[in-house]
Simulated scan of single mutants.
Amino acid sequence: MKPIDIIGFLHNARSVVQVEITQVKGSSPRDVGALMFVSNDGIAGTIGGGQLEYMALDEARKLLKNNATSARMDVPLGPEIGQCCGGRVEIALTLMGAHARAAAVTRAEADATALPHVYVLGAGHVGRALADQFQYMPVACALVDSREEELSMSGADVAKHLTPLPESLVRDAPKGSAFIVLTHDHALDFMLATEALARGDAAYVGMIGSATKRAKFTQFAKTQSGMTPADLVCPIGAQGSGDKRPEVIAVAVVAEVMAVLTRAATETALIV
């Protein structure tokens, strides 16, 4: 669930219990600090799913039913609860007052602002399939095209930009963004890939195509300055099944991009 969904949940639910993992020993599905919010008829966030989450959900609903303010759980993640992580977690459950709810909304807003940006440059079949997948990922995805009819065919819950100058969006994108280039025109693909690579701070630059297209781009790159064609991923999703259906290509590419973005976030966190 994205931060924006948590914000909506916290604004709309009447009574909410915050469920937080406070200690982990050994293996567990989520780390310390993982949060889930529970109301009488809904949940937002996750502490890892499975039997552990079911037990915490049940405990939170009991807390709401009994008008209690807090509870604690100490759960071994073993055969006795049908999980095999082998660790142990402690969980704090707290009925949220106005101050706690406001603080949680502020945190979620900060998380939403910090989401990495993914620009899908081209709203054809594969571009729309990518938007369909990225709408569920922890990213801020934008689908970009100059063709209104193609852009209008996407029902994904992502930002949509109808523009004759997609290169301007590439130039203005935040540092660490990912760019996936798959327009209807190879010359435009080359221009947008060049713009993205020339930034020097993109987390990922990928262009749809074959090894032949990459070779042509490498030749083209020799005429350009300020870019490193070696940083270009082309073909995209190359570790996939080889299936060329848009939806299957999209799965492989989303996995590829998310792996890069997750690695970049981890490296940044270690530096900080």
Score class of each variant (00 low, 15 high):
A259R: 10
L115C: 00
E148Y: 14
T212C: 06
D185K: 13
K213L: 03
V17E: 00
M207A: 04
Q18P: 01
V24W: 13
S241H: 12
L10N: 01
Q23K: 14
G124L: 03
T183H: 05
M55T: 05
T218W: 11
I249P: 12
T94V: 06
A193H: 02
A238K: 15
A102G: 07
G87L: 03
S241L: 13
I180E: 06
M258L: 06
E149I: 08
G240K: 10
P79Q: 13
T262I: 00
E109S: 02
D189T: 06
K65S: 15
G86L: 05
L232H: 08
G82N: 14
L182W: 01
G97R: 04
N67D: 05
A108P: 11
G97L: 00
A110L: 11
E195A: 13
I7H: 10
E150P: 01
H186W: 11
G87H: 14
E20C: 10
L64P: 08
N12A: 02
N66A: 14
A221K: 12
A230L: 09
A100C: 02
D189Y: 13
A102L: 05
A196H: 12
M153D: 02
P79F: 14
A255C: 09
R147D: 07
G78W: 10
R30F: 12
Y136G: 12
S15T: 01
L57H: 12
T268R: 15
P166L: 11
K160Q: 14
A123V: 05
T194Y: 05
F179R: 07
Y136A: 13
F217E: 09
S210I: 01
A211G: 07
L165D: 15
F220C: 07
E80G: 05
T46A: 09
M153H: 08
V32H: 11
G42Q: 00
A123I: 03
P29V: 00
D41G: 13
V19P: 02
M36V: 04
L10Q: 01
G45N: 14
E247I: 01
T266V: 08
L151H: 01
H186V: 05
P166W: 12
E195Y: 06
G124W: 04
P76A: 14
P3R: 05
A131Y: 07
V89Q: 15
L165P: 01
L192F: 13
G50Q: 09
S225Y: 02
N67T: 03
F220K: 08
L52W: 08
D5P: 08
V205I: 06
A44W: 08
